[in-house]
């Protein structure tokens, strides 16, 4: 057992991310960096600023031209209305359920697959790898036409399961390849050592490899979460009105035959993006750290 422990510690050291680069050691003022940062920040945040401004603009002023960059008249009506619209919270709940289960399932499926691709050589391996990577290469609009019929036959339409299974599958290319890269970075000696201790392959994987891969699992999980969170077309078609997630829900609510309730749409988008953004900001350390260990190569 002790042998295993030291090996674990050794591997942890090997795979933990090197300390963040301290490349800029007060050599000279980093003008280039600051200018780049300002430009990138403007690009990233100005649209968000405009989204926020629009969300507090009264309806009859939303279209005034030239637009008021700094609003003179502010209303929180759109927000109040959202909090009085139970449907939005049902969509939010659905989105969270679907995205969270997708995340868990996707991580579980990809870690096994990634491990197989990383640590074993078997016939058909390369073809399977091609297949995983290429599984997102066909027009989704067409897949949907058939998938709808398939789910209908299995009576899975209008269920969370239809969405979860689809989204999980669509996350496989990224998650499997990411985790494969992660496992590649773990030394094979670990597996050998576990075997020496008499651990079976499953135990080796679950109690030796997986704990070391935890940050990577979190990272790929977050990517899976965003996939489920963002999808429009599949969510709209497969989920039905009761299980509708946010993207189609918002469209259904604010975009009508030929007009768009811009301020309300923007307000709702902000409201629903806040919880997930906060969670990601809290997790970002983990996210970057998690990809790191697996990022030695793709």
């Amino acid at each position: 057992m002790t042998a295993l422990d030291t090996e674990t510690a050794f591997a942890a050291e090997l795979t933990s991310p090197p300390r963040p680069g301290r490349t800029g050691k007060r050599r000279r003022p980093r003008w280039g960096m600051w200018i780049a940062l300002v430009i990138l920040a403007l690009f990233a945040f100005l649209p968000l600023y405009w989204l926020a401004v629009t969300s507090v603009t009264p309806n009859d002023q939303a279209f005034s031209y030239p637009p008021r960059l700094f609003p003179t008249e502010i209303t929180f009506d759109h927000y109040l209305k959202i909090f009085r619209t139970p449907a939005i919270f049902r969509y939010l709940e659905n989105s969270v359920i679907v995205s969270v289960i997708t995340t868990l399932l996707s991580v579980a499926v990809s870690m096994y697959m990634g491990y197989a691709f990383s640590k074993f050589r078997f016939r058909g391996r390369k073809s399977l790898m091609y297949f995983v990577l290429s599984s997102q290469m066909f027009p989704q609009a067409l897949l949907l036409v058939t998938l709808y019929v398939v789910f209908a036959q299995f009576n899975l339409l209008n269920t969370y399961l239809a969405l979860i299974l689809s989204f999980t599958t669509f996350t496989l290319p990224l998650c499997v390849w990411m985790l494969k890269g992660f496992f590649d970075a773990l030394p094979d000696d670990l597996i050998e050592a576990a075997k020496i201790d008499g651990a079976g392959p499953w135990r080796t994987f679950h109690s030796v490899i997986l704990p070391l891969a935890a940050p990577g699992l979190v990272a790929s999980g977050l990517f899976a979460f965003v996939r489920g969170w963002n999808d429009f077309m599949f969510a709209l078609t497969l989920a039905g009105p009761e299980k509708q997630t946010l993207p189609p829900g918002l469209v259904n609510m604010f975009i009508t035959e030929s007009s768009t309730a811009w301020p309300a749409l923007m307000a709702a988008s902000l409201v629903v993006s806040v919880p997930v953004s906060v969670a990601f900001i809290a997790l970002q350390r983990f996210l970057v750290g998690g990809v790191t260990a697996g990022a030695v190569k793709g």
Binding site: G124, A152, F154, N155, L156, L157, N158, T159, L165
Partner: peptide, 26 residues
């Protein structure tokens, strides 16, 4: 082997379908 895998795979889907059972809106 491949066929066997495929069969198990499809079985899994069928099982999932059965699980979901009457939750659909047929």
């Amino acid at each position: 082997d491949m066929f066997r895998f495929a069969a198990v795979g499809l079985g899994g889907v069928a099982f999932a379908g059965a699980l979901a059972g009457c939750s659909g809106d047929g």
